[in-house]
Design a protein around this nucleic acid. Structure first.
Lengths: 347, 347
DNA sequence: ATTGGATGTGATCACGTTATCACCTTATCA
DNA sequence: TGATAAGGTGATAACGTGATCACATCCAAT
């Protein structure tokens, strides 16, 4: 257990010497591979414990091409949706003895590539990756270097990656239906950047629901980044229109919070003056006043699923790739309001 | 840029061959070390680009004992306080070309050691560590293997580590003073597990303020884990006392949210029936209704500071260790209520 | 007695990189 | 003229492991 005031690390050779065996025998004991006599194993284990021997992963990885590390590349760990995913991933792979490298791309493709290059160099066993758009360059880097990838949260038609995401289209459709059934006819969607599948799918699903349940109703879409600031900005613009919307759909949690802020600043009541629905619930831990009606994604489960898939693929790279689509769950709270009654504000 | 349908990685030898030079020359070009003729460098760079060469970090690390990786071991990344810290750390070290390994200990010492062993094996260049209690075993592992450590958020008297934390005592003192000045005389503190410095310091600082500004007033302390559930549980118990507190201090954000939940369930109004203050603000991004009066810690700055310290120490291990204590900032909102007036409920 | 499989062990080398040393060439100076 | 320094390059040897091979020993079945 002791190693003195240690400078350089204990090597397998020192353990072998102390146990009076060859290095291969120590290796076999440590890796539980091959035959080792019971007495020998005990001597080796004693030496390992006495010296506090920890195998050097650099040397190991050089031979075995395994690092015991996977990576999780998200757009912003600060978003509780990704935080919860991260916890799901970490819990899952940690149980299998792997550790997690973290990266934030802020939806910037150059960052995606920068990270992917570092990951290839580090020889990670796999990557869980939230691409901004199609993530082509980064995915190509992974593919050409034989690194297994699970694409998370976003759509991907790349043939050689697993995908774990939620039914954004369906969740948005449900929200649209709810608002239509409540009698709304003028909608604004606060969307993310075009080209990001989650945003695009949600805009589409919502629009489709409106076409179906309030034919001819107006849906105006405003694009921004996934941030509170942009949510607030876009909501402000919408509210200042000549004919403002009676219902707003924010495609992302930050946009929803921004929208709420903007409404409050203008003394516009939610849901009294305008109904508001969002996507991605905040973890119950963080919410002092549950208020927003949302389509909630099972973030933790997504992390677990992605982690499990990746571990399986690392185990057996020949497995066929799958595209997993998990369902969302609508949680109706105050912000969506109720039935508008027979007198919706004049259109 | 192309590597065919790539299976095994491109090595320095292949680059050398293609450029018609020795491997050392390639190494020198890649590492910008030593002398290389301008023409040679260009040939090598062309070969590197053509083959998509990425140096193998395992081999590099084996020679140079550098991994280009640091670790961040927190108790729970799901806590937005730590999430924000993580983002600060990642932004900082990422700019220096390092990546971050993440671990959650859930305040369990065995997990601390399990992670630390893996980190030593991986040869990380340094660790930013939030110990549950004193973290002795894990710190000893790091020390004996020559891994630089920055202890984050918690107190540590270990001589050979940097410490970056906030003035928990002072922040709690401020909150206590505020409540005393508002006329409160019966206090309950919802604390974390004993032995965790943040909790202990906050209990002490708060108690000290009460002693000073409301001599003889009652402060009862209830201990639990840092969770919404326990916050709710403890708050429930406090509210059901014969002589319930008029003011409650939750030493942590989760405990505060739990307390709020418990109050609401019992139709106890905050701050009408009981004042509530907490520690750790939630990021503005996440808060739909700013309500809780708190002592806020500069989480992002703490992450940046810890990252910077660690990078500096990696650069020059001989630097003396420092203990950095950042100030907290009290943010007064609704939940703490106002002056109780001349008729505090009879004690 | 002989074969053959299961058990048990160590020497040797390769994994991909960089530190070191050795060796060139050319320029500069006394 | 020779000496010295600076620029430029490659062969070689580690770094710490684990795969492979070679070689023991033992026991059971022929």
């Amino acid at each position: 257990m002791e190693t003195g005031p240690g400078k350089s690390r204990v090597t397998i050779r020192e353990v072998a010497e102390r146990a009076g065996v060859g290095t291969m025998t120590v290796s076999r004991v440590v890796n539980r591979s091959g035959y080792v006599h019971r007495d020998t194993r005990e001597r080796v284990e004693a030496a390992v414990a006495a010296l506090g021997y920890l195998p050097n992963q650099h040397a190991r990885g050089l031979r075995s091409r395994r690092s015991g590390t996977i990576a999780l590349i998200v757009t912003d760990i600060t978003n509780p949706f990704f935080t919860t995913i991260a916890r799901g991933v970490e819990d899952t792979v940690s149980a299998a003895g792997q550790m997690v490298l973290l990266g934030n791309t802020d939806e910037v493709e150059e960052e995606e590539c920068r990270y992917m290059k570092m990951l290839v160099q580090k020889g990670v066993d796999g990557v869980i990756f939230v691409p901004a758009r199609r993530g082509e360059a980064a995915l190509e880097l992974a593919r050409s270097n034989g690194v297994p990838v699970v694409v998370l949260d976003r759509r991907s038609d790349a043939p050689d990656v697993d995908v774990v995401r939620c039914d954004s289209w369906g969740g948005a459709f449900e929200l649209g239906r709810l608002l239509c059934h409540n009698g709304h006819r003028r909608f604004t969607v606060l969307a993310g950047p075009t080209g990001i599948s989650t945003s695009d799918d949600r805009v589409e699903g919502f629009s489709r629901a409106v076409e179906e349940f309030s034919p001819g109703a107006r849906v105006s879409v405003r694009h921004g980044r996934f941030s509170v600031r942009d949510g607030s900005e876009l909501m402000g613009q919408a509210l200042e229109e000549a004919n403002p919307p009676t219902a707003v759909f924010a495609v992302n949690n930050f946009l929803a919070i921004g929208a709420l802020t903007a409404a409050r600043e203008r003394q516009v009541r939610v849901p009294g003056d305008v109904a508001l629905v969002g996507f991605d619930d905040l973890p119950a831990q963080l919410v002092t006043f549950p208020f927003l009606t949302v389509s909630a994604q099972p973030a933790y489960a997504m992390g677990v699923e992605a982690g499990t898939r990746l571990l399986r693929r690392i185990e057996d790279p020949s497995l066929p790739c799958e595209k997993i689509i998990l369902p969302t769950q609508m949680v109706v709270r105050e912000s969506s309001g109720g039935w508008l009654g027979s007198t919706p504000s004049p259109s």
